[in-house]
Design a binder for these strands. Structure first.
Lengths: 205, 205, 205, 205
DNA sequence: AATTAAACGAGACGGTACGTCGAGTCTTATC
DNA sequence: GATAAGACTCGACGTACCGTCTCGTTTAATT
């Protein structure tokens, strides 16, 4: 199952000098460093190239836009974190993982900015969707399934992921162990058949 | 108690030609238009000035940064929407209001971008906090109080506001009447003393 | 009679901040210096701007192309030298003036290069024609007229100007007093009615 | 007598794959075409390689600089034209040959540009000297010798070659049969012992 | 009515970064 | 060892905006 992949520019054939793997690594590392230091808005291609000790053209040969680069440098690791799904993951673990992902300083700088850009760039939006939102949805849905009761998983994803995102990036409140447990308890209360299920609410427009 | 207000620059004295109210209106209107058309990332001060038929200096005389301008042009209306709190607002109305606020095309373009910038700019963050987050928190807390049971309002705000934000700006799912009702039902299930309350969860780290 | 003027970009109206005369002077001086130091081929706009202590945009606001800049910086002075025509200029003086003009180190670097570029750029060619060739033709023709005999002035210009140009820029031979006198003697021999006049040569194709 | 030859890079040994003669021809042809189409200033090595269907390295293996390539592609044919000297060449034929040489469109584009570059590159200057100026000087001198009178041949070369060059490349006047005859007549008037000889002019500085 | 002082439009200024192009060199696989 | 292909570093291109500045002009409130 080939995952909808990187937005990296692709090489033509097997001809010519191969691309330098070292350059790749240096660029991604420099991007992560600078995201942490100055944030997304002040991140410049020239700055990344200089920090990586690489020519601008080497960078442009690989990524078409700043957003693409940042997605690969900072969001792809998050995506992997979300995708790497154990069979016996508890609900707490899943939420804890989300929290952990959004707390990485370089991701934090990039996350909202990329989402903002995705609002205007459907290609970028699709990529974020496939690599971040879908895995998060899967993560939440898997727990729901395992715990054996079925609320609308879409709502649950928005609630859980939204709460984590809002807590960390907007309210800037504590995203500690208590927060994780409270959030999970909240989700359980909802999905618990004994409680008032959201899915009871009749027919909708 | 004067609310930490607009980030507009203030006039020096009462002397000289007064600032043109028409210029103000034209600039804010142009900003809203361009936010809708090209988004925040591609919004330029020069573009706004040109569209408004105003000199750049007229703009800089009023706002110090692009973010300040956008806050006044696109987020302040949202803030007013949130602040204007009737005594007999139902929970559904409150959530519906949040949904409505985030759906304005020009706000949508600006919201995440300003939040992203706020992550690096504490002054901006404080302003967003005071004008947007606090009112939203108040809105949610007021409902909770009226409905007579006390969950941690901070968590509830993150859950409700986060869910709305995630649904509209990230998942891009339907933010329709059903969504509003389901979300409210979910919140009620949690805060209902008969359900499993999040606040029961013992001691916290 | 307005002479077809400079290829400088023109200002729109009397509005706005006026262009800095100091910037003008600094740019032209820097251009002349660099022409002397590195020649035309290696002259860069960035180099000129840096040397002049001026932003690139300030330069581009005034001149559209490198050739235009060089014409103003190095060839215009030559044009003035040629145009500034005394009534009692001797033939020797005229040729000496031509020699002097082509010997300026910064002009030397620029002259052939601009002529080469003019071969492909009709606007540039016209300008060179009006500011350099025509005045040179006038200079030569004036002498011919004063000395009272009429060879085809066009031929004479090509012969005299061509000889000077070839001697200095191509052969790199000595362009000394002897050369001047020999060249004038040659021209006189031709235009002298007692000699074989070129214009006698019957019917032409 | 080995003529100071081409500036082509020389092969190392007789080992390995021999250089492709087809590549040579393709490169030179492409160079001539592009000189005619875009001129010297806009001629790029990459463009030539692409047009010739050859890798850049193949080109660099043969010529060190753009000027060298252009000399071989466009000026060498002119040099051959000048060098190929019949015993019974008339003065008119010689001048006509010069005219013809400078009228080739690809040479025209290159001639002044290479001369301009030669002003800063002594190696290039030497090569142009040997392959173009010397043969032209010889051509003129041979006529002078045959017609039996001795003006300073250096001056004569500058006068004749300069006049042709100036007429064609600078004035852009008609370089027709009349021009050729007038120029020859002029040269004869000078070198004719009955006329005023330039070399009579007394003592020289 | 004249004065005063700031607002205004226009646009130049020194900068920074953009994304592109071409230079000349290097690396790989293929002939 | 030559070749085609295409990577590499580097430097400059010409453009777009930034935020500041300097003009001449306009507009109210104060004298």
């Amino acid at each position: 199952m080939p995952v909808a992949g990187t937005r990296r520019k692709i090489r033509s054939g097997g001809l010519g000098r191969p691309r330098s793997a070292a350059a790749d690594a240096a660029i991604l590392a420099a991007t992560r460093e600078l995201l942490g230091e100055v944030g997304y808005a002040r991140l410049t291609i020239e700055g990344v190239a200089a920090r990586a000790g690489v020519a601008k053209s080497t960078l442009y040969r690989r990524w078409a836009t700043r957003a693409d680069l940042v997605v690969d440098a900072a969001l792809e690791p998050v995506a992997e974190l979300l995708a790497n799904r154990d069979a016996d993951l508890t609900a707490e673990d899943a939420v804890r993982r989300l929290v952990e992902a959004l707390r990485r300083p370089e991701s934090q700088a990039a996350y909202l900015a990329v989402l903002a850009e995705a609002a205007r760039d459907d290609t970028l939006h699709a990529r974020v969707q496939v690599r971040l939102i879908e895995p998060a949805r899967e993560l939440v849905a898997a727990i729901g399934r395992r715990e054996g009761h079925g609320t609308d998983p879409d709502l649950l994803v928005d609630v859980v992921a939204g709460a984590v995102l809002h807590r960390i990036l907007v309210s800037r409140g504590a995203a500690d162990e208590r927060f994780v447990r409270d959030l999970v308890a909240l989700a359980r209360a909802v999905t618990d058949p004994s409680g008032v299920s959201a899915s009871e609410s009749g027919v909708h427009e």
